[in-house]
Design a protein around this nucleic acid. Structure first.
Lengths: 190, 190
DNA sequence: GACTCGATGTTTACAGTGCTCACATTATCG
DNA sequence: CGATAATGTGAGCACTGTAAACATCGAGTC
């Protein structure tokens, strides 16, 4: 974890960990089966810290505004600890790691409870999935620079705006406009 | 690209590319400055293929249902070509790579045009961000096994359900309590 | 045609990595 | 106290990214 905070994810190696611990390069293999096991262990810790971080933003959100503040916290976590976040989510998950599955299940349950509390009338399962995905996607798009993140507060504003936008969209009683598709104007160019 | 499809992202190395090309280990350096440059080039191709893939799902969506079909396509792309998708989004983006920024800008514009067409009355910018994030998040959560993906059609169903759930949520009349800023004041450590 | 020069490829080399194995040390507990 | 499990060590292998010096080859010019 120290290495991650100091020098990012590329600096993380079993050998570097060994050096930091003042121990021979092979020693870590007594504690972690392989590199992936180390990653899983770190990720598990990360999930727990993420849960605490979110709870600190709001222990039990029950309004869209409170939900938004937790969403902002999620994105902030990703941006403040990018290396950790990438290890938590940017790799194929080792599904055999119990610690790891338990921790992610906890996050998942937490999101579901928020969804249920905030929108009791909705399909909680689907809504929870959607909310987690929305927030998770925002985090990654910012992390990858697909969305500009000039200042933390600008990010916070855009996150809340995005959530606001989705929640306030009223389903247009879809009568497809007779004129129909404005010629390929919106097709993906490139 | 061949290497990616055949053996996943871990099999991708400059040396492996050289071998595949029947050429010495140092030869690729005449074409790519370093490993990251190779990744960027691959990613740029990936963005273009993603754009085509989405356009194939629906050339210019203008209803929530059509939007959902494009969303499903996005997630499918991620699941069918995980290694490519991870290179496109799972690494810190090299912002100096022109090809790359252009391609992602195109995707971004594409999403915005969909948002605008489908929900003309909404804040297009924010909504586009939200939709992209939602879909992107779904893709990553599935990719990482945070959401179970038993069959492609089950995934498709859950993706549409998630979008449906978000779009049909009616906003409960919860007016922001006075004094609470909407940009997430109350979240820790900002 | 000879000649230059830029693009491309080759060789060799170095440092860092994951990982294994045989061996040493230490700690714990019966 | 001594057996035994836990932990650490060293050397070594195959692989990676990257660099530098050297070779080749092709297109265009005199």
């Amino acid at each position: 974890m120290e290495l991650l905070e100091e020098s990012g994810e590329t600096a993380l190696s079993l050998r570097a960990v060994a050096r930091r611990a003042g121990v021979s390069p092979a020693a870590p293999y007594r504690h972690y089966a392989d590199r992936q096991a180390l990653d899983s262990a770190i990720a598990a810790v990360g999930y727990r810290e993420l849960a605490e971080w979110l709870a600190a933003a709001h222990p039990s959100p029950s309004t869209p505004e409170q939900l938004a503040s937790v969403a902002v916290a999620y994105v902030q976590f990703a941006l403040e600890r990018p290396a950790l976040f990438r290890i938590m989510f940017g790799e194929s998950c080792d599904r055999d790691n119990d610690e790891r599955v338990a921790a992610t299940a906890a996050v998942s349950a937490y999101v579901r409870s928020i969804a249920q509390r905030t929108f009791p009338q909705a399909d909680a399962e689907a809504l929870a999935t959607a909310i987690w995905a929305l927030v998770h996607g925002l985090a990654f798009l910012y992390l990858d620079g697909k969305l500009d993140a000039p200042t933390p507060s600008a990010v916070a504003d855009r996150v809340t705006a995005a959530i606001q936008a989705l929640l306030t969209v009223t389903r247009p009683d879809a009568r497809p406009s007779p004129g129909e598709s404005r010629s390929g104007a919106g097709s993906p160019g490139v």
